[in-house]
């Protein structure tokens, strides 16, 4: 029945429909799912992946991939908390901590982009390497002393405080999302990334500074991961090298499911964002519906499969190439 009703839809509408169906389903299974409290909970949980996914989408649109998400978050998050009011060090440098942490993310992104673009190493492996490099930096910063916890009430409360009914952390993510949409649709850079993903040799022969765009895309992704690391650290209230744990397998699937194909040249920031909502709501709904933890990844996998097949079904054709 569900298949028939979305048969004539395609693109982002397909994935939106899947999202709506899930929301309805979970609300029926547990009315608390649709409560204001859960809405705030979900918005709290999507904020960090949303920030990351903006950068990830730009990279994937080029046809590349960025696996370094968790490592960069760890490095930037640790740097930020050690330079902010915390229980371990006295080195609070206020707003400059943000600059240092974001700068660290930027540098790691630049390195990834440069090695990828200039040394022609597949992005999969470079970013796998920078993942460990970032993680390594985070571990070295952590050392083996006391767990650094935020001592500033203001900073620790900020993410959950409500402004106009929505949590602050979500507003931050929304701003980043809007900026991402603007860059990818309304700037030469953004459209260039799509062109590179579609057909790089032609883009190059049209005079596009492909290498510079590539490096810029990774640099943006790195900076955004740094921001995400800071936000995640604020949300947890303490610093940890593993602050990014699990984000990779939310963000990349979200982008891909949203329609930003790994081969590049299609999709977009908004679609990836919808993908993020889909995955977070799926997980949240499963917990609220009382699914046995042992079965959680199985049910998750099944629903994912069904959703993805349902979205792809109307578009299948003899000559369609799906990779």
């Amino acid at each position: 029945m569900r298949n028939l009703s979305i048969k004539n839809l395609s693109g982002p509408t397909g994935i939106l429909a899947a999202l709506v169906v899930l929301i309805v389903l979970f609300s029926l299974l547990n009315p608390r799912f649709a409560s204001v409290e859960n809405l705030q909970n979900v918005l709290f949980q999507v904020s960090v992946p949303l920030i990351i996914v903006v950068g990830t989408s730009l990279v994937i649109q080029m046809g590349s991939i960025d696996l370094s998400v968790e490592g960069v978050m760890g490095a930037a998050g640790m740097a930020w908390i050690l330079l902010s009011p915390n229980t371990r060090l006295e080195g609070d440098i206020g707003v400059w901590a943000w600059f240092v942490a974001l700068g660290l993310g930027l540098v790691l992104g630049l390195i990834t982009g440069a090695i990828y673009a200039k040394l022609k190493v597949p992005s999969f492996v470079v970013s796998l390497g920078t993942w460990y490099v970032g993680l390594g930096i985070a571990i070295l910063l952590y050392g083996n002393a006391l767990l650094p916890s935020l001592t500033s009430e203001a900073l620790a409360r900020w993410p959950t405080q409500l402004t106009l009914g929505l949590p602050n952390c979500f507003w931050l993510a929304a701003v980043i999302l809007a900026a991402g949409v603007f860059v990818s649709h309304y700037t030469k850079f953004g459209r260039g990334l799509m062109a590179i993903g579609n057909n790089e040799p032609i883009a190059r022969s049209n005079g596009m500074p492909v290498d510079r765009y590539k490096i810029a895309a990774f640099a943006i992704a790195g900076t955004l991961c740094g921001l995400a690391g800071i936000l995640a650290t604020m949300q947890l209230g303490s610093g940890s090298p593993d602050i990014g744990f699990g984000q990779l397998f939310v963000v990349i699937p979200a982008a891909v499911i949203g329609g930003t194909a790994l081969s590049g040249g299609e999709g977009g920031v908004i679609r990836s964002a919808i993908g993020v909502f889909l995955l977070i709501i799926l997980n949240n709904g499963l917990v609220l519906a009382g699914v046995d933890p042992d079965y959680q990844s199985g049910v998750f996998g099944m629903i994912l499969l069904i959703a993805v097949i349902a979205v792809a079904w109307p578009q299948r054709g003899r000559l369609k190439v799906a990779k």
Partner: peptide, 10 residues
């Protein structure tokens, strides 16, 4: 933290 949050909602 995440599981606790979900259970609080529930």
């Amino acid at each position: 933290a995440r599981n606790a949050k979900d259970l609080i909602v529930k």
